[in-house]
Simulated assay, not measured.
Amino acid sequence: MLHSHSLGKGPNLIILHGLFGSGDNWRSVAKALSDRFQVHCLDLPNHGQSPWTEQLNYPSFADAVRDWIDANGIKHTHLIGHSMGGKTAMQLALSGDTDWLQKLVIVDIAPRDYPPHHQDIFAALDAIDLSQFSDRRGVESALMEHGVRDLGIRQFLLKSLYRNDENQLAWRFNLELLKSSYDGIAKAPDFTAPFTGPTLFIKGMNSHYISRDDQPAIEERFPHAQAKLIEGAGHWPHAEKPRAFMRILEGFLPE
Rank of each mutant, 00 (worst) to 15 (best):
H3K: 13
L13C: 14
L13F: 15
I14N: 01
G23C: 01
N25V: 02
L33I: 04
D35I: 08
F37I: 05
F37D: 01
Q38W: 08
V39E: 11
C41R: 05
L42C: 13
D43P: 05
N46S: 08
S50D: 07
W52V: 09
L56M: 11
N57V: 09
P59M: 07
F61D: 04
A62H: 00
A62P: 10
V65I: 03
V65F: 04
V65D: 06
A71H: 14
N72C: 13
I80C: 11
I80N: 00
I80R: 00
G81A: 04
G81C: 07
S83R: 06
M84V: 15
K87I: 07
L94K: 06
T98V: 15
L101G: 04
L104Y: 04
V105H: 04
V107L: 00
R112H: 09
H117I: 07
H118N: 08
I121V: 12
A123G: 09
A124F: 14
A124C: 13
A127L: 08
D129M: 01
A142M: 12
L143R: 00
H146P: 02
V148E: 01
V148K: 00
D150N: 12
D150Y: 08
I153T: 15
Q155E: 15
L158P: 03
K159L: 03
S160Q: 11
Y162D: 05
E166G: 10
L169G: 03
E176V: 08
E176N: 10
K187Y: 10
D190S: 11
F191T: 15
P194N: 09
F195V: 02
F195P: 00
P198M: 10
T199F: 05
L200W: 11
L200I: 13
H208E: 15
D213C: 10
D214F: 10
D214Q: 14
Q215Y: 12
E220V: 10
R221P: 00
A225I: 06
A227L: 15
I230D: 03
I230F: 05
I230S: 02
E231L: 15
G232P: 00
H235N: 06
W236H: 07
P237Y: 09
E240K: 13
F245H: 03
F245V: 06
R247V: 12
L249V: 01
L249E: 02
E250Y: 11
L253N: 07
